[in-house]
Amino acid sequence: MNFGTTAVKGLSLVVGALTTFCLTTTGFAADSYPKSDIKAVIPFGAGGGTDTLARAIVNLAEKELGQAVIVQNKPGATGAVATEFVRQQPADGYTILIAAENQNLYRTTGLSKLSFDDFEPVILLGEAYPVVVTLPDAKWKSISEVLDEVDKNPKSVKVMNTGPVGISGVVTAMLGKDFTLVPYRGEGPGLAGLLGGHVDIGIVSIGAVIQHVETGNLKVLSVISDKRLKAYPDWPALGEERPEYKKYLPWGPYYGVYAKKGTPQPVLAKLQNSFKKAWSSDKYQKFLDERRIVPLGLMGEAAVAYQKRWESVTTWLLFEANAASDPAAFGIPRL
């Protein structure tokens, strides 16, 4: 071995490493945003519903922003870990959060002290309607028959449940009946449990089951809304069959892009413009449509108002079902 060449090689590596590090740590001037990559934190694992929705918009938005948006999944504690992480970053618009509705429920369920009050909505992407599904050969023809059955025999109906404050948790709290909530490790295993007949009904967003409904593996008993959906006029709406639930409806999960509170107005405006353009593109609208997500596109005041209503309806529902603490203690008004 010739030590001379090795030394030269070693030295060149050192120089190389030092130069690259110098290049990567050059600071950014604050005049025009964005100067460097933007990090988009997703509070759930890669491949999930929020993740795919986020990646699709990020890919379109980075063209508008003129900088790469790097997606980072930080799952854990129903998103509380990622939420806390983004809150700890500087409010400069270089770290954004792409989340679902869960943050609204952190305080009353004791998951975290944070809520969407600590964030500025960039844009609300869309909302999903939950549907009640069952196997095609199930004995029930409508949601009313299921509710009557539970009234007669409490605990006799098993509901697939993917988390303490997930869709089925909130909807069963809304229905106020004594269901048996069988836990599953996520939507995939839950769907397998439903198709395998280990539970009686599932309450999930339309997008998750639409193909199984179209191929006849599952049938829809009811859509959790006040009126029938335009796209699926055959599905009875809960509010129409049982008017007593109308006051809670429509209810469903939603998705949004957030920046930390205190982000400078010009930065926020740039983010809003870019994401709005990406959101409005035919490509993204088609994507939302295929996932059966109803586009929202709300920004600013409208987005905040939407969230406030959602937070109020849901936290009070969960409080009445003994699944969360008193929302009044956090200053959440009752609608």
Binding site: G10, L13, A17, T20, F21, I70, Q72
Partner: peptide
């Protein structure tokens, strides 16, 4: 010294290329 410095430098370079550059 050649191996010590060279080894350290190449490990840092590998770390940079694989983790920071490759895996962001």
């Amino acid at each position: 010294p050649v191996w010590v410095v060279g080894g350290a430098a190449s490990l840092v370079a590998a770390e940079f290329l694989i983790f920071q550059y490759g895996f962001k």
